[in-house]
């Protein structure tokens, strides 16, 4: 059977020590058994490593940060689409999702398909609303406080014991053992990610994650649990292993059934020594370790593209447990002309 030729635009080519999911998403798509993909890389910075990786993207375009305004970003996507028609767009950053979700219909009108959570699904899982989320869907979450200013720091000890986790709305998390450390983390995080800064009770246990894909109708198309085996100082997995844990799968399926989650997601959970699970975060997109799920038998990006195009997708039930991934860093030697082209022309 010949493969369907399609063009897919992907963001998140920043394969740094805090990697975006773009490169593994592209790698997964290139291994698709049903699609013959042409990849358009969309980058925010001229030094995103994915730009320089041979054989990864067929074409690369610089796009403006969503902070410059949604219209500016979508106008640029339209401009790119006029030259290189895009069938499916897979955004991979939390911070850009809002703009793409807001403009989902505008993109579809010109033939660009996406498969993103709804605005309600996206907003109700915001880190600063996790307590309400836990209550609504019957899932354990750590106690939290949203700090709008430093003057609220004294409230922490009334509600929880130290240490606590100090988190930004989108990224960053620091452990703090006292009010002084909270203050330092608050300043760092608020300067970078704005307010509120979230204080979360520290739940002792093992951090485990589930990558999943919901079809928007309540069905779980894919779910693979993983435990980080090697964690960087930024808290990112540098090595991980797939688990066979029915409880984690059940939590994921129940949540997708209840919320009718549409698109890729990552559940971050803490498993306590007593075997209880606390939900600490939901990332509303495919995580950077997606290729582990592909290696374990579930090609999530391929399934997401099928869903975006309205194809029928059968839920994937099996995967190999005990599959591992180990990341590595690699120096690519780049000619100045390549850097010059992307920097000056905004495309390559």
């Amino acid at each position: 059977m010949s493969k369907l030729k399609i063009t897919i635009a992907v963001t998140g080519l920043n394969n740094t020590d805090n990697p975006g999911p773009g490169v593994p998403v592209i790698r997964s798509l290139k291994e698709s058994s049903v699609f013959d993909v042409r990849i358009i890389g969309l980058v925010y910075e001229t030094l995103e490593p994915g730009i320089y990786m041979e054989g990864l993207c067929d074409k690369i375009f610089l796009i403006p940060y969503p902070s410059a305004g949604s219209d500016e970003l979508i106008d640029r996507i339209e401009e790119i689409h006029n030259r290189e028609p895009i069938n499916v767009l897979i955004p991979n950053f939390d911070a850009e999702l809002f703009s793409f979700m807001k403009n989902e219909e505008r993109l579809l009108k010109i033939g660009i398909h996406t498969f993103l959570p709804t605005m309600q699904q996206f907003q109700e899982r915001d880190k600063d609303k996790l307590a309400e989320y836990g209550l609504k869907y019957g899932i354990k979450v750590p106690t939290s406080i949203n700090l709008g200013s430093q003057s609220q720091i004294h409230e922490i000890k009334e509600k929880m014991d130290y240490p606590v986790m100090v988190k930004g709305q989108f990224y960053d998390a620091y452990m703090a053992n006292n009010a002084e450390q909270v203050k330092q983390a608050f300043n760092k995080i608020s300067a970078k990610w704005g307010l509120p800064v979230i204080i979360q009770e520290f739940v002792k246990g093992t951090e485990v994650n589930v990558i999943a894909l919901g079809d928007g109708l309540g069905n779980t198309i894919s779910a693979v649990p993983m435990r980080k085996q090697y964690i960087t100082d930024k808290g990112k997995a540098w090595g991980g292993i797939t688990l066979s844990d029915h409880h984690m799968l059940e939590i994921t399926r129940r949540l997708i059934r209840q919320t009718h989650w549409k698109g890729g997601m990552e559940l971050e959970l803490i498993k306590t020594p007593r075997g209880e699970f606390y939900l600490i975060e939901i990332n509303p997109r495919i995580p950077a370790w997606v290729y582990l799920a592909v290696g374990a038998g579930q090609n999530i990006p391929e399934a997401l593209v099928k869903l975006a195009l309205g194809h029928e997708v059968t839920p994937m039930e099996s995967y190999s447990s005990g599959k591992m991934f180990v990341r590595y860093s690699y120096d690519i030697i780049v000619d100045l002309e390549k850097f010059e082209t992307i920097a000056m022309n905004g495309e390559i």
């Binding site: 093992t206 435990r227 688990l243 066979s244 844990d245 498993k271 447990s321 005990g322």
Partner: peptide
């Protein structure tokens, strides 16, 4: 059931990842 034991003495718990 989640335990795998190899003949060389490597034991893997696929539920916890240990």
């Amino acid at each position: 059931d989640e335990i795998r034991i190899s003949d060389n003495g490597f034991v893997f718990n696929s539920k916890t990842g240990d």
